[in-house]
Design a protein around this nucleic acid. Sequence first.
DNA 1: GATTTAGAGACATTTTATTTCTTTTTTATT
DNA 2: AATAAAAAAGAAATAAAATGTCTCTAAATC
Lengths: 152, 152
Amino acid sequence: MSLNHVDRQILALLQQDASLSTADIADKVGLSQSPCWRRIAKLEQDGYIKGKVALLDEKKLGFDMLVYAHVRLSNHGRTNLAEFERLILSYDEVTECYSMAGTMDFMLRIISKGIEGYEQFVRDNLLNLEFVQEVHSNVTMTCVKRSTALPL
Amino acid sequence: MSLNHVDRQILALLQQDASLSTADIADKVGLSQSPCWRRIAKLEQDGYIKGKVALLDEKKLGFDMLVYAHVRLSNHGRTNLAEFERLILSYDEVTECYSMAGTMDFMLRIISKGIEGYEQFVRDNLLNLEFVQEVHSNVTMTCVKRSTALPL
DNA sequence: GATTTAGAGACATTTTATTTCTTTTTTATT
DNA sequence: AATAAAAAAGAAATAAAATGTCTCTAAATC
């Protein structure tokens, strides 16, 4: 199963604004409502669309501190990766986590309320782990751009 | 205007799944439909909800390369920040861009198709800019976690 | 050129969102 | 503590959108 031009158009629209109605989308891609709806349904079925989410205003909710932290694991951590990853998944402040090529390290995107919030999180949930050897914090200042959209 | 417990519950639900119906949410937070709908409408009005988007499957669409690139600007870049930022906004491959504390640098999240795609993007759109002095690529391997949700 | 098949459109039906009106709860004031 | 005013909740009606069904068209196959 592969995507044609219309499918890609639909995906491009929905990843910018998932509150568009089927009729709106149908209009924009030059289809009538039913076939357009069927395409969207299929795209969801086939897993091209993983889900729909509401994006909230971080600042307004008090999250003014965004840090990318590089974490170096201890030997113990390296032999218990699964356990470390399970922990990471349980921390809501860690919104993203990737293992990085080259090193046996992880990069964490951590969102918190003020420097205080960040420091507390790191102390309580990273530094005191036997898994973690070292944490390097890369603090962001201005957000120039942030999008969840893929370059279709 | 401040948020009560129910408002926060609603936000927490919607940032996980924006396809929930008003009735579903009303159920989960213990309200009836109309007041629940009014709260959601107000949360949007007041800007707590910035928008709703569909999240697509990167892998399935061929985007198997995710890199965080640190960009050091040249003198020329530093005196033309606005112009640099405008350019960054125009690159769909750059899904995020932050200026970093301490240095006069930026961190870019770049998504592309294969190493080839990444290399081409960097060559064509970063290295050949007079703004850019240096690019350090931090290549991600495994995605342990990725979420757009705030820790409410 | 006939036949099959995938996809399109029209329209009916169901579900969900939105509005209106009424009732309850809360808050402030006497 | 009693009462008025304001805010929030609920019920029910209405409007809009999503979903399903059926028919038709156009491309593909034989």
